[in-house]
Write a protein that binds this DNA or RNA. Structure first.
Lengths: 217, 217
DNA sequence: GGCGTAAAGTTAACGCCGTGCACATAGGAG
DNA sequence: CTCCTATGTGCACGGCGTTAACTTTACGCC
């Protein structure tokens, strides 16, 4: 967990700070990640934190990175094992796509603190180019691989492939937030499943790529 | 702007607190809405705030309501005037749908503070039933009306109508957040326009409602 | 006019927060 | 042994939410 320029954290010492649960697992979003809480967690005085993180924003960025990694690990672990025997490759790819979407939403609901942490706004210390930042985002990488697969098996029209990650990701991400904080909170399990299914179906139909944008029906 | 149960805010006094810009317009999300800042803004001592709001969560809820209303007013004002003369009603409805989506994203980018305010998590003091809460959300109401219109003119399959708000709203909402805080921040105007267009096209194609979920191409 | 009551505002205080400054310690390199 | 670096401590400052007790203001009622 790199603290950017100033305090020059050594790799060995950083593990001591990052290897323990940052606040409570599910509860406790970014607002719970404080300099003093981190110090308490490792049993030192608050000022000692500044030997490892430049300031609170830096600490927050580290927590954000870890949250994103944990989210990736959790959602990928939820993916269904590939069914044995020969199966329709298109159906299999679409299955994986929808399963990943469901896992994304489920993680957001199960671990709201980590989810909020993974996507919290942070003052932006990194200066990486666009593509490497996207590739560093596990959801984007997985989504891209499934979309590539759908092109390979001839289902997704190749002309729709460029930039096709944005829509599906946005839909699943937005749905997670609407369910978490928005007007869809307090929906019961059945209602949640309905909006998730509805949204994933919309995405799949959208990727299928029929035109018909005029009144031809 | 109602402060819930305790302090029994009179309608006349509440206007004095709510009629002035709550923090800076664009900058300053929910974290800038503090008891002390509100008191400074109206020129009183911090404790006086508790005569009008139960606590900070209550103040935040009031600010959230106002932000949502302002967002609705702004995005609706951005809608294109209906073209004169007879036009394809389907094209017109789709136009309005996409324009509303673009306005949603544009507001998020232009007024990030208000946008975050409008969707910030708040400890939830309201106990309204599901439907009335949804109806109170202006984006939902507008989206629902356009979808109804698309059914009436025979474009949107009626069997896809129930719950069809979730997907489009989630897509536009999620895209706004990915552009604001997520991996799509720092995209230039052209890149932003591309992901917005791509996402809106996905939504429209998805609503169009072709099936083809198997390898039939 | 005088008076009681409720709304609105004030001062003082507590504990939490981020942060800076000066100082202490410990352990390895020379 | 000495010095340097990494790490940690104590103290202090101002800002935050919140409470408790007190004062001021406005208004209806006799």
């Amino acid at each position: 967990m790199s603290s950017r320029p100033g305090p020059t954290t050594t790799a060995t010492s950083a593990t001591r700070w990052c290897a323990r649960p940052r606040s409570s697992p599910s509860r406790g979003g970014p607002e719970a990640v404080t300099i003093r809480a981190a110090a308490r967690a490792v049993g030192v005085t608050p000022t000692a934190t500044y030997r490892h993180f430049e300031n609170q924003a830096d600490l927050l960025a580290a927590a954000k990175d870890e949250a994103m990694q944990r989210m990736a690990a959790t959602t990928l672990a939820l993916l269904p094992a590939p069914a044995a025997g020969p199966v329709d490759p298109v159906a299999a790819a679409l299955e994986r796509l929808q399963a990943a979407g469901r896992g994304y939403v489920q993680f957001a609901l199960d671990q709201p603190g980590l989810f909020r942490m993974a996507f919290c706004p942070v003052p932006d210390t990194d200066d990486q180019p666009l593509q490497s930042r996207l590739a560093a985002s596990p959801p984007y990488a997985f989504l891209a691989s499934v979309l590539d697969e759908l092109v390979e098996v001839g289902w997704l029209p190749a002309e729709l492939r460029p930039g096709a990650e944005a829509g599906p990701w946005a839909a699943v991400h937005g749905l997670s937030l609407l369910l978490l904080d928005g007007p869809y909170r307090h929906l019961d399990a059945a209602g949640r499943d309905q909006v998730v299914t509805s949204t994933l179906d919309l995405v799949v139909r959208g990727l299928a790529g029929t035109e018909r944008t005029r009144g031809d029906r």
